[in-house]
Nucleic acid binder design. Structure first.
Lengths: 235, 235, 235, 235
DNA sequence: AATGAATGAGTCTTCATTCAT
DNA sequence: CATGAATGAAGACTCATTCAT
């Protein structure tokens, strides 16, 4: 379920011909390059066209405006990432809880880690625009995928799945974003990934309704259980 | 440890007189209002001045430029939030693990929840600028505070505290940001807060080195333990 | 040897097409008109563009800024004048001393007299800017040309040619400038020209190392006397 | 005969009190300092006031505007220089032709050389303003003084004195200005001064109506030769 | 008299967008 | 279809000048 381009952001032409497709690709690539090199401030249509080796006029032949171009670009990126996560989630449907936790964490980080710089650049650029719907659409797809994942965890059930899904996705995506904005992203990435898995496992484990092994221990008055109550109260 | 304004972002005048102080406050307030109403695109110095009821010239008497104004504003906000978290962490030094987890989560969310709209607006506005040092400074303060908190958790010790602190802070701040960017922040906030606490407790509990009660159970080969090994391998 | 535009003063576009060339010419002409009409105070980019019949944007497409425009304009003018003087000096290489004196004086005054008003206007305008290198470059060219002239005066030699060249050039250019700044330039020009020739002849004659004829002829038919007649004729 | 301040350029207050006089002096000095330090671009009333240690308001208490301030300052400078030249010319009334030539050259250069930087700065600053009358007034005074000088040269008479005076003054003042605008003014000054004297002597000698000694003496100890020696000594 | 905060018209400059060629 | 010259509204910032305190 991809977001529908709101009115003025719809691309102008269908790239039927191969040449057109190549032009569009060049424009996309140029946009990223300019963004990477000079930041959002330097992102002008003229510069993009120049970098792409076409004239401004050509750019406007394919996109009704700068925003539409950015919209399409961001859309493509988010789409790719969303798809990757969806695939991974589907592939691991029915796995163990720990495996599911790892699956989402890995899939999301991998999807984003491919081009940290580009992600960050696009994020900054999109800030100026009105593309919250795009972000929302991606979040929605992630929710859907994660919900599917958790619904089929081997032998587990979760209550108030909505909150769980929302929070987990928020934490994974938000945490990753913080990591990517930080200096030294590359060095920190492995440790962060590991901790995020630990956290996800511990979290999901602590909130599962059925507790096969834990039930054998009388120490069920663990921190997690207490926390559960808190949660129920507050929700 | 606040970040030092880098050269061109230093305020111009010391507001010695009461009138000046009021003017500056009006400018700050107007900036927020404009940001809230029209977004980053509409944030022009002329509009700010008009909303503040002063002339542009006055604005430029106190700030060398638009960026400096935003810098000061963001700085103030982050400062306030950082301080709140620091205070809370110090106040709960020596508490139980669960209490510590809750402390940070509550402190951070409360610090931000006070003015969600403002936070979001400022965040978007600051994107255009070069204020990564400000964000970094705040992150550093949070790290410091959280590290202090975890070092004095009653009867617990953590290894590789660096990664833990970084990851936890990233997850809490990033997750909160995602929540605040979403539509329907208000409705989701209570559930998210609860889940975040659960997650934090479960996470910290699962990675603590000493496990007083858990040691009594032979079922210590829990998920968390396994996760620990994973963490050690991957780091 | 023209001065190289220092970084920010380099023109932006090469006027490849005829239309562009015409536009640039219009901008130059408009600049001069505005300068002539309103002085340096009235010289704003908007006014120039308006007078040129183009939009400001167009102006900025060819010049990176107001200073660059002025730089190019002044450069062009000085270039033309320098070239005229150089040509004249070369054409009279090997002439008599009196002829050489007249040559430089005439060449310089003629080069400047063509558009007194423009020269004055440009001079005033350039004052605000950092174009000392342009002036220096022209002076250097004049020095070179005059030195060549004096080195090949028929049957004469000069010592400490450096000081002589510098002083003579300074006096001719400076004196002419004073004349052009004065009210009633036109009426005064012929007399000034004659006196400047007299002065130059007398000066060069008095400092030549070899004095072939002066010693042999007791008659007063010296250069000065001849020059006097010239002066009387021209006045 | 000093130029009368045209309307809006008249100083506002009579500096009757000593304190006022000191304030004005401070403002003048500050103006020069700012001009020297930052050029005409940096010359703002606020900066002047700050440098002078007074408030802008005070500045406007003594001068009706920025132009008036500059006008007064330039006026003072030109006045001083004019006076110096007038005194020197009067003192040498009745001297020999060579002495008269030297007198004016030395007097003018000395008057300007005292503060080359200030002269240059003031000249640049005055360009923006409408102070041609000031310059004209000074020129007029110089003309008057030089005319008096030449009218009483021992045993000489000049015809068409107007043109002679105008040209000689133009050449001396203009040449000196060129020298002062050049880099390396200081090093070039002595040689230039000597050459300017040589030129002036040769010029005046060549145009004198009566030539008493030149015909009677076959020796080459003409004025020019003497001047040559001077030049060699001074260089 | 002195102060200095406030003013606001006026500058330079940018950049998304159009359209004649 | 492509081009790129032209557009002009809009924004950041300056600075001479005023006036309430």
């Amino acid at each position: 379920m991809t977001a529908r381009p709101p009115a003025k952001l719809k691309p102008r032409k269908r790239p039927v011909q191969a040449r057109s497709q190549a032009t569009i690709e060049a424009i996309f690539e140029a946009t990223i390059q300019v963004l990477l090199h000079g930041g959002a401030r330097a992102l002008t249509t003229n510069r993009i066209a120049e970098k792409a080796g076409v004239s401004v006029g050509t750019l406007y032949q394919y996109f009704p405006g700068k925003e539409a171009l950015l919209y399409a670009l961001v859309s493509r990126h988010l789409d790719k990432a969303s798809l990757a996560v969806e695939r991974a989630c589907e592939a691991h449907s029915g796995s163990s809880l720990a495996d599911c936790a790892d699956t989402f964490v890995d899939a999301y980080i991998d999807a984003k880690a491919g081009d940290v710089a580009v992600s960050r650049a696009l994020y900054h650029a999109s800030t100026e625009l009105d593309m919250q719907d795009l972000g929302a659409a991606m979040i929605a797809r992630l929710h859907q995928a994660v919900r599917g994942l958790l619904e089929h965890v081997q032998g587990e059930r979760f209550e108030s799945l909505d909150s769980i899904v929302f929070s987990w996705v928020a934490v994974v995506t938000g945490g990753t974003r913080v990591l990517f904005e930080e200096d030294g992203t590359a060095e920190r990435l492995p440790a962060f990934r590991a901790q995020l898995k630990l956290m996800s496992r511990a979290y999901l484990d602590s909130i599962r309704t059925s507790k096969p092994k834990a039930s054998s221990t009388p120490t069920s008055e663990c921190e997690a259980a207490e926390a559960c109550r808190v949660s129920e109260t507050e929700c």
